[in-house]
């Protein structure tokens, strides 16, 4: 059994069963916020118990183990075809072991062959860089939260949202309102301002690779990120949409250039069961360190 395969399998296991520390801290803070004895506080308590159980039993935090999205940063010397083959084998084995649900369905025939392999599953994004380091990040994103993602084309008359940051704010907050508890809140938003319909959504998902504690280098966006979380948490949607104080745990906003004719705001909603992990590999494919 080769090193890379073992590392990828362990990456999938950890991602599916262990919540990252930054997310766990945010969940514990929100548990403190909710008024004791309310259904919102009880929901957060069950969530916290669930995090511990999943870790201890090495079983999926959520049964919807989601879209399997790898992000690989590597030097040009990496054999991408061989890497992808190993990733597919690791997904197949992880599914047999129950770290992943049999979650990939042929869109036309409705058949599920139980392997999690097929067109688009898993998805592997490769990015070459000059450094010799190989890093692999994995996001498992469930269907419930994916379904409440939204893309707005500005201006939007109904929302009175113009082509400026205030318009973006209105669009993002509308996405929070429409999502209510359906995306398994408290949630985390990845947002992209600009791009086209495909790159906008893709870049919004990539924001979910950022640590919850990081600071946006663009001060205007840093302010907007903070404002979105504060405002969303005044709306009273709360955990699971039960009513309560925590609607969002975080918001991360990125930007792409746009065409003069287009102005998209793309919002990806991540559930509290925020499954993301990453690793740095050595040349043999063994794990050197974990990233979250």
């Amino acid at each position: 059994m080769n090193r890379l395969f073992e590392s990828l399998l362990e990456l999938i296991r950890r991602t599916s069963t262990v919540i990252p520390d930054d997310v766990h801290r945010a969940i514990l803070a929100s548990l403190e916020q909710e008024k004791k004895g309310t259904i919102a506080a009880n929901a957060m308590q069950i969530i916290d118990q669930n995090i511990a159980l999943a870790r201890n039993k090495s079983q999926p935090i959520c049964q919807d183990t989601g879209s399997i999205i790898f992000y690989v940063e590597a030097p040009a010397s990496l054999d991408q075809i061989a890497f992808e083959e190993q990733a597919r084998e690791a997904v197949k084995t992880a599914t047999k072991k129950g770290y992943l649900r049999q979650n990939s369905v042929d869109s036309i025939t409705g058949k599920n062959d139980g392997t999690n392999l097929g067109p688009g599953s898993p998805t592997v994004h490769f990015h070459q860089h000059r450094s010799p380091e190989i890093s692999v990040r994995l996001v498992l994103k469930g269907g419930g939260c994916e379904n409440v993602g939204a893309q707005y084309s500005l201006p939007n008359e109904k929302l009175k949202a113009n082509r400026d940051l205030d318009g973006c704010r209105k669009a993002i907050l509308d996405a929070v309102l429409q999502a209510q508890g359906k995306g398994c809140g408290p949630g985390i938003l990845g947002v992209c301002i600009g791009g086209d319909r495909a790159t906008g959504y893709e870049h919004s998902k990539q924001q979910l690779l950022r640590s919850l504690d990081d600071q946006n280098p663009n001060p205007e966006l840093a302010t907007l990120e903070k404002d979105i979380v504060e405002t969303a948490n005044k709306l009273g949607i709360g955990p699971m949409g039960f009513g309560g104080k925590t609607t969002l745990l975080g918001t991360k906003i990125g930007v792409l250039n746009r065409l003069p004719a287009s102005y998209f705001v793309s919002v990806s909603y991540m559930c509290w069961a925020y499954r993301r992990q990453g690793m740095v590999l050595d040349a043999e494919g063994a794990v050197q360190k974990w990233l979250y």
Partner: peptide, 29 residues
Amino acid sequence: HAIGGAAQVLAECIKRVPNVHFMEKFGAP
């Protein structure tokens, strides 16, 4: 309303799985 995402807490309450139907027809999930 059950707690979304709490797959482990809820699986603990499922003591037995006596049967399954339409497994071939619809797939496991």
